[in-house]
């Protein structure tokens, strides 16, 4: 029983940290949550992804969105235009994913993230 409570508290704490990153950077948070569930709580890869999806169904970013919109930091028009493409594209991507090996794809994507991150950090702080 005590073990279960400790595990639950740990998961809640880690999710809160992922939430801070989510609100700070305007992202979903699954990118951090999935690997952390696997590495820290011994979830299998599939179970971590399924569990992270539960967390992403309710509008967890709502409080953060309200805070951003109060300061005028939301472009509603751009957002509305992006949603239909994302939806259709997501379905297409899911179909393509079944036909391609996921591992090299993930590694290419990881490489792109590293390059993009370095570019953003450099362009912000070195000039």
């Amino acid at each position: 029983m005590a073990e279960r409570i400790r595990r639950g508290a740990g998961i809640f704490a880690i999710a809160s940290v992922c939430g801070v990153a989510s609100g700070m950077f305007g992202i979903g948070g699954g990118v951090l949550l999935v690997p952390l569930l696997v590495l820290l709580f011994a979830f299998s890869q599939h179970r971590a992804q399924g569990t992270s999806l539960v967390a992403l169904i309710p509008p967890t970013g709502l409080l953060a969105l309200i805070a951003y919109s109060k300061q005028g930091f939301v472009s509603w028009k751009t957002g509305l235009l992006l949603i239909p493409g994302l939806f259709v594209g997501g379905i297409a991507g899911g179909i393509i994913a079944k036909k391609i090996k996921p591992r090299p794809m993930s590694q290419v994507f990881a490489g792109i993230l590293l390059a993009l991150g370095a570019w953003q950090a450099l362009s912000a702080w070195w000039r």
């Binding site: 999710a15 809160s16 939430g19 801070v20 609100g23 970013g61």
Partner: peptide, 9 residues
């Protein structure tokens, strides 16, 4: 956790 964390973020 993410709801409150995101607000803090």
């Amino acid at each position: 956790g993410m709801l409150f964390g995101a607000y803090a973020g």
